[in-house]
Nucleic acid binder design. Structure first.
Lengths: 105, 105
DNA sequence: TGGCCTTACGTATGACGTAAGGATG
DNA sequence: CATCCTTACGTCATACGTAAGGCCA
């Protein structure tokens, strides 16, 4: 499993459509998206989405996975921010400089 | 960024060696691992590891990223467990069946 | 039959392995 | 010169796009 699967699944769940998610949010083709979601379900060995001809819905397991996936993706963003902040503490310079008096980045 | 990058980085950080991480934990070749870590640092635009000839150490930003990466990976595992449990609630069957009286999975 | 998802298939990006190179004690 | 990491390069897995095929109102 990779973050791509989480991003794709969240997009499908939130737009309620493979077509919408692919075109508007992921900028990819539907078949690729469909395949990745299928792969995700195969990995988990759990169906996440109930495909209807006109609309789709999440299984109970799909709703659980959606909540977790959102948290994971949010924490990845937080990790990036925190890491960059640790490297380049521009707006909190005193937290680095008040001891040694010199800058790192 | 993908989960692979987090897995690789954590393995390197915890073993303290590209060689050890590749052979013992990741079962891959060092050059591939080296490249993925480099890609990760390029994405973040933050150096994470200080390469020494005999040993390596983490930058402050690397330590921050390590903590976050561990959390993310742990939550992915938790997501998988929770999702499978939601699909196949064997040990808490009454939470599904006590209303409708029928089983899903 | 029109919209939506899936299957089939060819392409291409990139992850990986092998080999060679550079650096350090 | 022994060890570790990096660079170079060819190969292969697989993610992606296009086209065709169901399925259901």
């Amino acid at each position: 499993m990779e973050l791509r699967h989480l991003r794709y699944f969240v997009a499908v769940a939130e737009t309620g459509s493979f077509t919408q998610a692919a075109a508007q949010r992921l900028h990819t083709a539907q078949p690729s998206l469909s395949r990745q979601i299928r792969d995700l379900e195969d990995m988990l060995q759990v169906p996440l989405i109930i495909r209807g001809p006109r609309n789709l819905s999440l299984t109970p397991a799909g709703q659980v996975f959606l909540e977790h996936a959102r948290i994971v993706l949010a924490q990845v963003d937080a990790a990036i921010l925190a890491t960059r902040r640790a490297h380049r503490p521009a707006k909190t310079r005193f937290t680095v400089g008040f001891l040694t008096g010199h800058e790192i980045g």
